[in-house]
Nucleic acid binder design. Structure first.
Length: 555
DNA sequence: GCAGCAATAT
DNA sequence: AATATTGCTG
């Protein structure tokens, strides 16, 4: 029985009526589970053999909304096959054994959750969340009819909620999670239990069902929601796990995890802000990150009537390094030439992001590449002029900064981020990918945001605060620091060495500068004062200073 | 209707 | 400063 969009009424009592495929060879267990599920008014179709179950879903996963499959170390392999065959069906594994290996394998193969028997009513009650999650996180093309139906329903519910926020009475309250305050503990039937185990998804708000404009149907979620809420999104697996009150988190979908975007709402000057009682609008960033780009939300401003796209609050996507990395990966994957917003959006699989967001980011990204990479190349492969010049570039702290980045930033001690994996990164700044990734090249680097990795030293050249890399030519270091490496080959491999000068490098530079003061200083640098030089040397343990330091030519 | 770009708004 | 939005063009 396929469910179509016309069956919305069918979900009047959602999640009652969800069709569940149950596969458990242990007849006693199966009967018990089936009984519990039926008490909750789910429709259970039980199978005692994997073969039958596979036959049942073969080619028509739309016959079910969710599958509950028992697994043990004995039938694990077979279950893997099942998971493979049931890719489009949210599958919950159940077992008597808490075998981490098996659990991981199942999850890795796409199981949405792994529950250990016995299954309590609480555990079973929330399984609908997987269905909803799947419904919202599967591409339209591969989505089964049953999931489409659910999605449609959920979308309609959420929309209704938005429109009647004030009175959150309506229909399936179960799905509603309110936003602002509290949450988490609703006693509602659906979301009710306290987050059961591992990954039981908690839908918190949902929101958007419609895209705004272009959107895809993703939802977004956030992690730290501040005031408004948005809806969920997906899960970036590990990361966005909810902190205790995750608002809109949906469960994760192993096969293709999507991420969530965090968005900040900006205050709008127009009066539409209405109500919100909410919080003092601290808008600024801080916590106001929302997730979910779309309109959604209920809370905050949603009140307005507009339906789908009317008054969408303004939300800002926070292009975190991680998100940017995803973006870059998508671009690289598509090829710079074919990277267009819609495709990037698809590849990124980040809920909440819209094509507009990406277009905007892409615009900036391209601009960076266009303006910066060429110059970078020049610097990277300078025309051999004279040996002196070359020597100079090879050993001096050159100010090889792209125009985009003003030197004064360094001068003022401001710090910059390292966008990319080629540089030494602070422990908290994860590498963006193994060297084998095709995308990693230059793109990932663009220092748009300050990052506490380097600062200007007395010489006016960037120096890492936590030097850990071997010496290398400075021009590159400077570039790496700015994240404008354009040569992928150099990028990895020497990685950290390109960017973080070590103490010895600094020493070398300092010594050289001291011993050859007649050499030109890098553009943009002003000669250090003797005092600063001495201070720097002293700081680095260099006490012997050549007599000619004061401007006398050594020869 | 989308993509891309530039200008402008937030 | 970083993004979003808008207006235009193709």
């Amino acid at each position: 029985m396929v469910c179509t969009a016309n069956d919305l009424l069918e979900w009047k009592d959602f999640p009652k009526g969800l069709r569940i495929l149950l596969l458990d060879e242990d007849t006693n267990s199966a009967a018990e589970i089936k009984s519990k599920l039926e008490e909750m008014e789910f429709i259970v179709i039980a199978f005692s053999s994997e073969h039958e179950a596979l036959a049942a879903i073969s080619g028509k996963t739309e016959s079910f909304h969710v599958a509950i499959v028992e697994v043990s170390i004995h039938n694990r392999d077979g279950r893997c096959n099942f998971l493979e065959a049931a890719k489009d069906l949210p599958t919950i594994m159940i077992s008597n054994e808490q075998c981490l290996n098996t659990m991981m394998k199942c999850i890795a193969l796409g199981a949405v959750e792994f529950l250990i028997k016995p299954l309590s009513e609480e555990k079973l009650r929330n399984i609908w969340q997987h269905v909803v999650h799947k419904a919202f996180n599967t591409s339209e093309s591969t989505k089964s009819e049953s999931l489409k139906s659910v999605k449609e329903f959920v979308g309609s519910v959420l929309e209704i909620q938005q429109q009647s926020i004030a009175t959150q009475t309506q229909v399936s309250e179960e799905l509603i999670i309110d936003t602002e305050m509290d949450q988490n503990d609703h006693s509602q039937s659906a979301a009710g239990d306290k987050f059961p185990a591992p990954s039981t998804p908690q839908i918190k708000q949902g929101g958007r069902s419609v895209d705004d404009g272009d959107s895809q149907d993703h939802m977004a979620n956030n992690s730290p929601v501040k005031e408004g809420a948005e809806f969920d999104g997906d899960n970036k697996s590990v990361d966005n796990t909810n902190n205790g009150n995750s608002f809109a988190t949906m469960e994760v979908d192993p096969p293709q995890p999507t991420s969530v975007v965090s968005i900040k709402e900006e205050d709008r000057s127009d009066g539409s802000r209405e109500s919100d009682n909410s919080v003092p609008k601290s808008h600024e960033n801080e916590d106001t990150t929302y997730v979910g780009p779309d309109s959604g939300n209920l809370n905050k401003d949603s009140k307005n009537t507009r339906g789908t796209k009317g008054s969408r609050k303004k939300i800002k996507v926070d292009w975190t390094p991680d998100l940017h990395k995803k973006f870059v990966q998508a671009v690289e994957q598509l090829g710079v030439d074919q990277a267009i917003p819609s495709r990037i959006l698809e590849l990124m699989k980040v809920d909440g992001l819209t094509r507009h967001n990406i277009a905007s980011h892409l615009q900036k990204y391209r601009m960076h590449r266009r303006h910066i990479l060429p110059k970078q190349e020049e610097r990277r492969w300078p025309h051999p002029r004279d040996s002196i010049q070359r020597n100079y570039y090879a050993h001096r702290p050159v100010m090889a900064y792209p125009p985009y980045h003003t030197n004064h930033n360094f001068a003022s001690g401001q710090v910059y981020p390292i966008w990319g994996q080629q540089g030494c990164q602070p422990p908290s700044f994860p590498m963006w990918g193994p060297p084998s990734y095709p995308w990693q090249p230059a793109d990932q680097n663009w220092p748009w945001k300050p990052y506490p990795a380097m600062h200007a030293d007395a010489w006016g050249c960037p120096v890492y605060q936590t030097p850990q890399c071997p010496p290398s030519a400075f021009p590159q270091q400077a570039q790496g620091a700015y994240g404008f490496h354009s040569n992928p080959h150099e990028s990895y491999g020497k990685n950290s060495s390109d960017i973080n000068p070590k103490d010895e490098v600094i020493d070398k530079v300092v010594k050289e500068a001291i011993s050859k003061p007649w050499l030109p200083l890098p553009i943009g640098l002003k000669p250090p004062s003797t005092d600063s030089v001495l201070a720097e040397l002293s700081r680095q343990g260099i006490s012997i200073i050549p007599p000619h330091i004061n401007g006398h030519h050594p020869c």
